[in-house]
């Protein structure tokens, strides 16, 4: 039986995870630290570090998802989209790791899992907004052909929307996004992924028929 797009859309609307109030202990307010990306003088904050650290794992998951396109019978247009996502987000991971490294902050590995973070002295694991659960990743991995295209686009829209939400959350935090490198990177994530969401939604509704 043919699938209906509606249930998947409903899943999307409900599955955008939101987080708030995450805190880290040690403050980093070093206004003189090197900023090798776009030099600026403004201080960065815990919220900036959290945003960058969390986005690394977020991007890593997108790269895993996109990497399945060739082996899962994706259509040509989805394969091209996936190539672009891998190219773009791999570069951005490097940029984010450099940013942390330059500021002598812990640099997370680019692995697709949940982010480890310390809250009130206890280590927690959490998925950043929009990231796929293990169950969703299994669903995607199990699909091939048009089914894969459909699930990929649906899940990647969810994934991108999560990144856009992370940017909104960052800019809604007092003191955050002052560092010019952070402002530029977060603004780029916002416009690039919003544009790509638009493109993927169009693709989703024009998928080749079975």
């Amino acid at each position: 039986m043919n699938r209906s797009a509606l249930p998947i859309w409903t899943t999307l609307l409900l599955s955008v995870v939101t987080v708030s109030g995450v805190q880290r202990p040690a403050a980093a307010q070093d206004s003189t630290a090197a900023n090798a990306i776009f030099p600026g003088r403004y201080p960065y904050t815990d919220a900036d570090i959290h945003f960058i650290s969390g986005m690394i794992g977020h991007h890593a998951q997108a790269i895993v998802m996109a990497g399945w396109a060739p082996t899962h019978g994706a259509s040509k247009s989805v394969r091209v989209l996936c190539e672009r996502i891998i190219n773009a987000q791999t570069d951005e991971i490097t940029l984010m790791q450099n940013w942390l490294n330059d500021r002598h902050q812990p640099v997370p590995e680019a692995t697709a899992g949940p982010m480890k973070m310390t809250m009130h002295g206890i280590e927690h694991e959490m998925l950043m907004p929009g990231m796929l659960s293990d169950e969703q990743m299994k669903q995607l991995d199990a699909a091939t052909g048009t089914e894969f295209d459909h699930r990929f686009l649906t899940f990647m829209i969810q994934h991108h929307q999560g990144a856009v939400n992370m940017v909104a959350q960052l800019f809604g935090t007092t003191g955050a996004g002052q560092d010019e490198a952070i402002f530029k990177f977060a603004s780029d994530v916002n416009v690039d992924q919003t544009t790509e969401i638009d493109r993927m939604q169009k693709m989703l509704f024009t998928l080749p028929r079975d």
Partner: peptide, 29 residues
């Protein structure tokens, strides 16, 4: 494909600022 579908009387949804031809797996159920 979209143009052909539209010609064949497909269902077109105006989604945000764009038009989309809805695929049968969406329409049939």
């Amino acid at each position: 494909e979209m143009a052909a579908a539209r010609k064949a009387g497909a269902f077109v949804a105006v989604f945000g600022t764009q038009e989309f031809v809805l695929p049968p797996q969406f329409v049939n159920p």
